[in-house]
Design a protein around this nucleic acid. Structure first.
Length: 349
DNA sequence: AACCCGGGGAG
DNA sequence: CTCCCAGGGTT
């Protein structure tokens, strides 16, 4: 039995009964596919039913206003999908004589329809032999064949598409595609796949090598966190207060200055209303000078720092916060981040 | 190739 | 919290 035959056998026994599967109507299939882009079936289903009821054909959709479409789209997210649908409905109405295309080559020209959606609509509505590759298919292929190429890399997209093309049952493309997607959604799930009852268990690379949790591989888009600091230079003629940093944050174990952090860029008034500030200092008149904002770039964080100069030792605060009172001359005995050390060096010299 | 677009559910 | 979802468009 071929992969596709076994897959389709599984599909016929396990598939969900979904309304867009009971039709060859390309318009309704298009409607469902756009709604389901990056959207779970359970979330999209009620929207599909409302849209199909309000706009039963492409003509009625094309004649709707953008406000009407977006109103019905409300809460689904990715609202450009709704705007693109209206644009495409008008194109179908005007340039395809109101007949929704079923050929991949026509579909791919329409706004909001990419490779996946064009393959889905053409294969579901007219059985055209185009393989779909969505998030489910990436997962199934990566695990079954042990493909570790990142699915969101350019080469990975080509590689997975080629494998899917090769796997496709060209005589039954629509059902094969549905089966791939359904298998990924119900059986070969992202977390806790049902391997114990999987029909592909014995030939699945990931199962045999215990790699289901490592596949597929996806490049992480490193997200850069922004942090905003006020560092306090609390000093007298000879001494200054420093602080050892926590072990579970940047600059673990190094020394910096007493500080207050914000998640957004704020003015000094936010510092003055900060409970710590008011605990440490009597009032804002202790501030003699505040530096310009200094930007400091780390691999996954962007720091924005301002240095606040204060000549006022609150001994009680020193003890409570574990601050260290050291000689300015001894500053270089303490490991400090470049951001802090450079500023102090320039200031003290 | 990187970034943007969203709400929601699962773990 | 993070990850992911029947992805596509723009820069």
């Amino acid at each position: 039995m071929s992969f596709s035959e076994r897959l389709i056998a599984w599909y016929r026994n396990n598939k969900r009964d979904l309304p867009w599967r009971n039709t060859n109507n390309a318009y309704l299939i298009w409607l469902s596919e756009i709604i389901l882009q990056q959207t779970r079936v359970e979330q999209g289903l009620p929207y599909y039913l409302r849209f199909a009821d309000a706009y039963p054909d492409v003509k009625s959709f094309a004649n709707a206003s953008e406000d009407q479409i977006l109103k019905m789209w409300q809460g689904l997210g990715y609202y450009s999908r709704g705007r693109n649908m209206l644009k495409t409905a008008k194109v179908v109405q005007n340039e395809f004589n109101g007949v929704f295309p079923v050929a991949y080559a026509d579909l791919i020209t329409l706004t909001g329809i990419g490779e996946y959606t064009a393959a889905a609509i053409s294969s579901f509505s007219s059985n055209e032999a185009k393989a779909v590759v969505d998030g489910n298919v990436y997962r199934v292929i990566a695990r079954y064949f042990g493909v570790a190429t990142p699915i969101n890399s350019t080469s990975g997209k080509k590689e997975f598409q080629a494998i899917a093309d090769n796997l496709l049952n060209r005589d039954n493309a629509g059902e094969h595609n549905q089966a791939m997607i359904e298998f990924g959604a119900l059986q070969c799930k992202p977390k806790n796949p049902d391997c114990p009852v999987c029909p592909f268990q014995s030939s699945c690379y990931a199962y045999q090598h215990q790699k289901t949790n490592e596949l597929p591989v996806k490049l992480k888009k490193l997200k850069i966190r922004e942090r905003f600091f006020y560092f306090f230079i609390i000093h007298n003629k000879e001494e200054i207060l420093i602080k050892r940093r926590d072990n579970n944050d940047i600059w673990a174990g190094l020394h910096d200055l007493p500080s207050i952090e914000f998640k957004e860029r704020t003015g000094l008034e936010m510092v003055f209303s900060d409970p710590n500030f008011n605990q440490w200092f009597n009032d804002k008149s202790v501030i003699q000078k505040t530096s310009e904002e200094i930007k400091h770039v780390l691999t996954h964080q962007r720091l924005y720092a301002r240095f606040v100069h204060i000549e006022n030792f609150n001994l009680n605060a020193i003890e409570k916060n574990g601050w260290l009172k050291i000689k300015k001359d001894n500053l270089s005995d303490y490991g400090m981040p470049k951001l802090i050390f450079e500023y102090l060096k320039n200031f003290l010299n």
